[in-house]
Design a protein around this nucleic acid. Structure first.
Length: 481
RNA sequence: CGGGACGUAGCGCAGCUUGGUAGCGCACAGCGUUCGGGACGCUGGGGCCGGAGGUUCAAAUCCUCUCGUCCCGACCA
């Protein structure tokens, strides 16, 4: 038998040799997305959109479990709205697209295409909220937003991207903080359990927080080239927006007060993280839970086309009750070709069925993450497949976690960070930190990194890697996408 | 936004230096034989050479501009 390694889909660069080219190539060849005629915008093709739909299904379930409802707010925002919160406009103004004409006439006030929806949502909340009895407000929306990015990359950074943004309003700061942390935890579980992506969780330094937030929590994934990828954020907005948009409520004590808000979001960027983390030289590789196709059945005819197809169709029918299944009955390709094709497309589990298998009442199974094939009986196939997929999901996570853990480097000084970088040790640099914003910024600047997140756990009393004063938290640095 | 590279058939490329009938491989269509890790034979279709100007009897080829993509850096989810 031919060595498995030789049979790769042609024309995919090696991931290990040039991850950027590999990344673009697997997305295009895997038919996840394509470039659009508009600079910086991407077209998400059905196979890629299926990934997003799976993400939506999972997150919608989790959001609803935690009491949220979906709504929808317009994509056009009066320019003046963005300007109401000082930090907010400063953060987003350089990136906005502006509509100045409509119906052939100049608009009296230009409209911003939303880069994020805090401002328009707050303007509505101001209308809806009167009493503490109206709180909390827990609304999420699925939409696209536009940020005029200078350089773009498929999924990771595009001028328009899809996301969800939750916007909540609370009576007390404690409640808002609880919500912010709760949603961060939802995101962490989403990344780790659903997408098999290990992440750091923690708080952003003030320099890195959301424009207009009191503070921001983040999940930070690590890409195979050692670069960090901010993959989801949960912001505690305090009362900044409430004050800017005049959202007030009458509390139990008959005193008018400003409420406390949060917002949190995950975008299609995270699909980029899935691709980079799990893919390999053979192409895409999806963890079963998020895979557009979980099981592909490849029939092997050997002169018994009808009998084999009939059995394969029956197996598909049974498995389709629980799984996303594809039966590749195309005549024009040989099995070997199909194997490579579906591996390139990242399907986690393949079942082969031929005349010999029918005789033995079995199928041959092959996992995307391990070499070798196993035979499994057709009886109770659904249960066997479920176990296999669970096992594959765990192996995806374990593999990613091993990489992740081995790329967190401790550094007790700026020099040590530089030494790590110089020695080619790319990843997260874990430092003890005094808590000073200035100190963090200086470390970032000197080492050409950015601060990624502050671990919530306290240090055991070390010294700050920046200034040498007493440290109280751990701060991670890294290079980011 | 800087620095580099590249736009020729759906994809990957050659042709450009030295201007003169637009090519190769894969893919695609038809027929037949094949099918447990990318099968083969025969026949066939497909291009304003990214776009706009210019030079020339003549431009894929030379010149100018422009648009787009990729890679490497600075900013962002």
């Amino acid at each position: 038998m031919k060595n498995k390694q030789e049979g790769f889909v042609k024309e995919i660069p090696k991931k290990s040799e040039n991850i950027s080219e590999w990344y673009t190539s697997v997305i295009l060849k895997g038919e996840l997305a394509d470039y659009s005629p508009v600079r910086g915008c991407m077209v998400i093709r059905p196979y890629g959109y299926a990934v997003w739909e799976n993400i939506q299904d999972y997150l919608n379930r989790r959001f609803k479990e935690t009491g949220h409802k979906n709504g929808y707010f317009p994509m056009f925002i009066p320019e003046s709205f963005l300007k109401k919160e000082a930090e907010h406009v400063e953060g987003f103004a350089p990136q906005v697209a502006l509509v100045t004409k409509g119906g052939g006439e100049n608009l009296t006030e230009p409209l911003v295409v939303r880069p994020t929806s805090e401002s328009i949502i707050c303007s509505m909340y101001a209308k809806w909220i009167r009493s503490y009895r109206d709180l909390p407000v827990l609304i999420n929306q699925w939409c696209s937003v536009v940020r005029w990015e200078k350089t773009t990359r498929l999924f990771l950074r595009s001028a328009e991207f899809l996301w969800q943004e939750g916007h909540t309003v609370h009576r007390t700061p404690e409640e808002a903080e609880e919500e912010t942390e709760k949603m961060l935890e939802v995101y962490r579980e989403f990344a780790e359990d659903f997408l098999a992506l290990p992440v750091l969780t923690g708080k952003k330094t003030d320099g890195e927080k959301f424009a207009g937030a009191d503070h921001t929590y983040t999940i930070e994934a690590l890409m195979p080239d050692g670069q960090a990828l901010q993959s989801g954020t949960s912001h505690n907005l305090g009362s900044h927006f409430a004050k800017a948009f005049d959202i007030k409520f009458l509390d139990k004590d008959n005193v008018e007060k400003y409420p406390y808000q949060t917002s949190w979001g995950v975008s299609t960027r995270i699909i980029g993280a899935i691709i980079m983390t799990h893919g390999d030289d053979r192409g895409l590789a999806f963890p079963p839970k998020v895979a557009p196709v979980q099981v592909v059945i490849v029939p092997i005819f050997y002169g018994q086309k009808e009998a084999v197809l009939e059995k394969a169709a029956e197996i598909k029918r049974v498995l389709s009750e629980k799984f996303r299944v594809e039966l590749d009955d195309r005549d024009e390709y040989k099995p070997g070709w199909k194997f490579n094709e579906w591996e390139m497309k990242g399907v986690p589990l393949r079942l082969e069925i031929g005349p010999k298998d029918i005789e033995k009442n079995q199928v041959v199974a092959s996992s995307r993450i391990e070499e070798g094939k196993i035979q499994i009986p057709v009886d109770n196939l659904s249960e066997s497949v479920e176990k296999l997929l669970d096992d594959i999901q765990n192996k995806f996570y374990a593999r990613a976690k091993t990489f992740f853990d081995s790329h967190i480097f401790e550094a007790s000084s700026r020099e040590e960070i530089k030494e790590h970088i110089k020695a080619g040790r790319k990843g997260f640099y874990k430092t003890a930190w005094c808590g000073s914003e200035e100190c963090a910024e200086k470390t970032a600047e000197e080492t050409s990194t950015t601060s990624r997140c502050i671990e919530r756990r306290e240090t055991a009393g070390g010294l700050c890697a920046g200034c040498g004063k007493a440290a109280y938290k751990y701060l991670y640095f890294g290079r980011a996408y």
